Amino acid sequence: MAGRKRTPDAVKQLAGTAQPCRMNPDAPIAAEGVAEAPEWLSARAAEIFADLAAITDRMRIASPDDVAMLALLASRLEEIEACTAVIEDLGRVYQTVGSTGAVMHRARPEVGMRNEAMRHAQALLAEFGLSPAAR
């Protein structure tokens, strides 16, 4: 389907923009409750997951059905932290010597990894309505 994503009915009701003619009678209903962190998450990612679960609970959009997406977001945010730590310790660039003997400066791989993780995390935050524009 082309165009904008549909706004969930629950979001329309929370925003006060719900119109009966634009509601989806067949919309899936998410289970109520707060998601639990899956076992495969690292300790730091589990902490981030708990924070995200608390935020979504306060916003009244929490659901145990969102475990996979929240875990993915928590994992990406942890990856951003790890890449940032490497960049802060070792810098954004490193030096190599080319075939001609010239010293070249190259971007650390962690810079690109962090950029990709940030783009993905931003998209996931928007999916949950956790960015200013999404709210």
Rank of each mutant, 00 (worst) to 15 (best):
E32T: 15
G33R: 11
V34T: 08
E36V: 14
E36I: 15
E36D: 13
E36H: 09
E36N: 15
A37W: 01
E39Q: 10
L41R: 09
A43C: 10
A46Y: 09
E47L: 15
E47N: 13
E47Y: 10
F49A: 07
F49Q: 10
F49G: 05
F49L: 01
D51S: 14
A53Y: 00
A54L: 14
A54G: 00
T56I: 08
D57A: 15
R58P: 05
R58Y: 10
R58H: 12
M59L: 11
I61L: 02
I61S: 01
I61R: 04
I61T: 00
S63M: 03
S63T: 14
S63K: 02
P64C: 07
P64F: 10
D65V: 00
D65W: 07
D65M: 09
V67R: 15
V67N: 09
A68G: 09
A68N: 13
M69I: 13
M69C: 07
L70H: 01
L70E: 01
A71W: 03
L72F: 05
L73M: 04
A74S: 12
R76A: 15
R76M: 08
L77D: 03
E78G: 11
E79W: 09
I80L: 04
I80S: 06
E81G: 06
E81Y: 11
E81K: 13
A82P: 04
A82L: 08
C83W: 00
V86W: 06
V86H: 10
I87K: 01
I87P: 02
G91N: 04
G91M: 09
G91W: 04
G91L: 00
R92M: 13
R92Y: 12
V93W: 09
V93E: 14
Y94T: 08
Q95D: 05
Q95P: 00
Q95K: 01
Q95Y: 04
T96L: 06
T96G: 00
V97T: 10
V97I: 01
V97G: 03
S99D: 05
S99P: 12
S99V: 12
T100V: 11
T100M: 14
G101C: 08
G101N: 12
G101I: 02
V103F: 01
V103I: 02
M104R: 01
R106L: 00
R106N: 08
R106I: 01
A107C: 08
A107T: 12
A107P: 10
A107N: 15
R108V: 07
R108S: 08
P109F: 03
E110G: 08
E110N: 11
V111F: 02
G112C: 09
M113F: 13
M113A: 15
R114M: 06
N115E: 13
N115I: 05
A117G: 06
A117E: 05
A117W: 04
M118F: 06
R119M: 14
H120W: 11
H120N: 14
H120L: 15
Q122C: 07
A123C: 12
A123H: 12
A123P: 07
A123N: 14
A123E: 14
A123S: 15
L124Y: 03
L125G: 05
L125F: 11
A126K: 04
A126N: 08
A126C: 11
A126M: 04
E127C: 14
E127W: 14
E127R: 15
